[in-house]
């Protein structure tokens, strides 16, 4: 019995095969109604699954992800903008500081120059005053020396004249010496 049943099944399959072997099972129109019936059910089922659940869900996931990416990109752009602004502020501060420093340097330089000029002028004036004073003193001394020379010359001339045995005329001597000194 156990072996008969498969044999019978084979026999049935053989019979079916003999009936269909003339052509392709695809052209067995008896099965068309059945296939089309189940196909329509399968397609409607897939369509309902897709349009009700799957496609809206996937679309929302994709939109969400796109939104997140856009948001992150915007945030990154903003941060980049901030960084650029910070750099600009830093550069500006640096430039300001540099300008300030340059200004201070220039001011200090000008101050020092002014002080220096003043000091130089003062020193020049002092030197000039001192020089004038010295010149005056020298002139006095020179005058004094001239007078002394004249006196010494007069005395010496009088001595020399008396040594030669003559009485010297004071006035004549003075005139002669003056003439000599001037010449």
């Amino acid at each position: 019995m156990a072996t008969d049943a498969p044999k019978d099944a084979h026999g049935a399959a053989d019979a079916a095969h003999a009936a269909e072997s003339a052509g392709m099972p695809q052209l067995d129109f008896a099965t068309y109604g059945n296939q089309i019936f189940w196909l329509v059910i399968a397609l409607v089922a897939i369509f309902l699954i897709l349009s009700r659940v799957a496609l809206p869900r996937i679309a929302s996931v994709l939109a969400e992800r796109q939104g997140a990416i856009t948001k992150d990109l915007a945030a990154a752009e903003e941060l980049k903008q901030q960084a650029v602004e910070a750099e600009e502020a830093y550069n500006k501060a640096l430039a300001d500081a540099k300008a300030e420093a340059a200004k201070i340097v220039a001011e200090t330089k000008a101050e020092i120059q002014a002080e220096l000029d003043e000091a130089t002028a003062k020193a020049d004036a002092e030197i000039a005053a001192k020089a004038a004073e010295s010149e005056k003193a020298i002139a006095v001394i020179r005058e004094g020396a001239k007078d002394s020379i004249a006196a010494v010359a007069k005395d010496t001339a009088a001595e020399i004249v008396s040594a030669l045995g003559q009485n010297a005329d004071e006035a004549a001597l003075a005139a002669a010496i003056d003439a000599q000194l001037k010449g």
Binding site: H17, E20, Q26
Partner: peptide, 8 residues
């Protein structure tokens, strides 16, 4: 029997 696989 290459077409047997297609039998409904």
């Amino acid at each position: 029997h290459p077409m047997d696989q297609f039998i409904v």
